[in-house]
């Protein structure tokens, strides 16, 4: 038996995995299996986007967590012996993948940003190490070769007309001892910063929450969005988590990134590596952010920002 398997919690990431998974499956000459949560008509959708088989996980009781599926998926893998198993790297996906990998006694490469079949037909998987300062290329010597894939690593699959595939229900998982007491969904307060053409990021150099207003004004003038470092979301709780940029948060690829009061430690820098132009405003001329910038201003942000706003307004860029 063989196959390339994919699993994602959401449609967006399923489509990305269908794309890369489909490519790998055709190179190996095997089938592409998409494991999905329940069926609200998505099974045919995923077949249209390239899945040869769609396996449906049955709905869980309201007090069960995603992890309850681990034994069911692991049991299937033990029987079917897939070549490759790609899991979308959401937080829950990473946890699930690690448990499945342990059940199957196989290797798992976390957060892979590049996948390629090597000359020996082994899957070469690249990932960041040292907070983003290094890249590691690994292969997995056991089966299945497993990887988690962050969102937006691959382009989504394209729809192909007239495809047919197999649908199959997976067995109901045993009750897990983990009980979900409550789920509190966060309301999204802003747009998706990954779509923004300009991102103005604030760091711990900002003294109080209200000061973010002037950064927001700058972002507005530039037609962009504000983002931030992890201490701003996690330590200060001044901005929501979906604005945090970096290796443990979101990766942005805007035309312009400006870091303000951001030191430029590697875990944050890894999140805007592919920005076209990078700028920094920091009062410490030795801050590492300057090495990661095209243009920097060495100075106190409380003096620089008003001057920058005035300059942009003067040149007619303010609305």
């Amino acid at each position: 038996m063989s196959g390339v398997w994919i699993f994602a919690e959401n449609r967006e990431q399923s489509l990305e995995l269908l794309n890369i998974g489909g490519e790998l499956a055709s190179q190996i000459g095997t089938k592409l299996v998409n494991i999905i949560l329940g069926d609200n008509g998505q099974a045919q959708d995923y077949i249209d986007y390239g899945a040869d088989e769609v396996w449906l996980l049955p709905a869980l009781g309201p007090d069960q967590t995603l992890l309850a599926y681990a034994p069911v998926i692991a049991d299937e893998a033990k029987q079917e012996d897939p070549d490759i198993f790609l899991v979308a790297g959401t937080l829950r996906g990473k946890e699930l993948a690690a448990i499945i990998a342990s059940s199957l006694d196989t290797g798992l490469a976390s957060d892979c940003t590049f996948l390629k079949l090597g000359a020996d037909n082994k899957l070469e998987m690249e990932r960041l190490i040292f907070g983003g300062a290094g890249i590691q290329k690994v292969v997995c010597s056991t089966r299945p070769q497993m990887a988690t894939i962050p969102a937006r690593t691959f382009e989504p699959a394209e729809m192909k007309a007239g495809r047919e595939g197999i649908k199959r229900e997976l067995p109901t998982p045993p009750l897990s001892p983990l009980k979900l007491l409550a789920r509190q969904n966060r309301v999204r307060e802003s747009g998706d910063i990954r779509e923004a053409q300009a991102v103005v990021a604030v760091g711990r150099g900002i003294e109080k929450k209200e000061d973010i207003d002037m950064i927001r004004e700058l972002a507005d003038i530039l037609g962009g969005e504000i983002g931030c470092t992890r201490p701003i979301t996690e330590e200060k709780h001044w901005l929501p988590e979906d604005l945090c940029i970096g290796i443990s948060a979101l990766e942005v690829k805007p035309q312009l990134y400006i870091g303000i009061g951001v030191s430029g430690q590697i875990q944050h820098v890894a999140g805007f590596r592919d920005a076209r132009i990078v700028c920094a405003i920091n009062k410490d001329e030795n801050a590492p952010i300057f090495e990661a910038s095209d243009y920097g201003i060495v100075g106190d942000l409380y003096e620089v920002i008003p001057r920058l706003l005035a300059e942009l307004k003067k040149s007619g860029r303010a609305n």
Partner: peptide, 21 residues
């Protein structure tokens, strides 16, 4: 179960021009 085939530095090529305030 994982073997490292290669490691390399993640390069950051930027112009690094600095201005005063």
């Amino acid at each position: 179960k994982l073997e490292t085939r290669e490691t390399r530095a993640a390069s950051l090529k930027r112009s690094c021009v600095k201005f005063g305030s």
